[in-house]
Computed example of a mutant assay.
Amino acid sequence: MENTNTVSTLNDLLNITNDRIKGFDKVEDKVWDTYSSLRSDYDQMVSESQTMKSDLISLIREKGGEPDDTSTTAGALHRTWIDIKNSFGGDNAESTLENVAFGEKAAIEAYESALNDGTLCPQSTSVVSEQLSKLRSSYSKFTNLEKSVD
């Protein structure tokens, strides 16, 4: 039963990580003209997301589970909303930064919930805690930049 709960929680985090990767795909080329200095941070976050995904898939398989390599419905709805909003208001760097910060905050909340619900084994808790730290760092970078735009 423990493995089943752990696998379920890890799959939820894998779905959130896939949302993050798809969300970062939406950032491509929208802020670099204005914020070219962010490009290396962005590339690092994309790379970290791919590593996080691989680590989660490995943990799921180690626990005897099958990775659910999809994204969430909420994430898909959010990305659709972004597309609709941008089609009416035009793409702009400030809106893009707000959307990144929103997505990072949602991911942080999901990771915190996973760590607090008691379903993760010690090894998984360690990996998820490390990933949460990276999410918080990313969130901080984008919210600080977002504040400097105001």
Rank of each mutant, 00 (worst) to 15 (best):
E2I: 06
N3F: 04
N3S: 10
T4E: 12
T4L: 09
N5M: 07
T6P: 00
T6N: 12
V7N: 00
S8Y: 06
L10N: 07
N11L: 05
L13Y: 01
T17Q: 09
D19F: 07
K22G: 04
F24S: 01
V27Y: 08
V31T: 08
Y42V: 00
D43C: 01
Q44S: 13
M45A: 05
M45T: 03
M52E: 07
S54L: 13
I57W: 02
L59D: 03
L59Y: 08
L59A: 02
I60N: 04
I60C: 02
K63N: 15
G65V: 14
P67A: 14
D69Y: 06
S71V: 10
T72S: 08
T73V: 15
T73P: 04
A74P: 03
R79I: 07
D83R: 02
I84S: 04
K85R: 11
K85W: 06
N86T: 10
F88Y: 13
G89M: 10
G89R: 06
D91G: 00
N92A: 10
A93S: 15
A93K: 10
S95H: 05
S95T: 13
T96K: 04
E98D: 14
V100N: 08
F102V: 01
E104Y: 02
K105H: 15
I108Q: 15
I108C: 09
D117F: 00
T119A: 11
T119R: 12
P122H: 03
S124P: 02
S124Q: 03
V127C: 10
S129C: 15
Q131N: 12
K134Y: 02
R136P: 05
Y139Q: 07
S140G: 14
K141E: 06
F142I: 03
N144Q: 02
L145C: 10
L145V: 12
L145Y: 05
K147E: 13
S148Y: 08
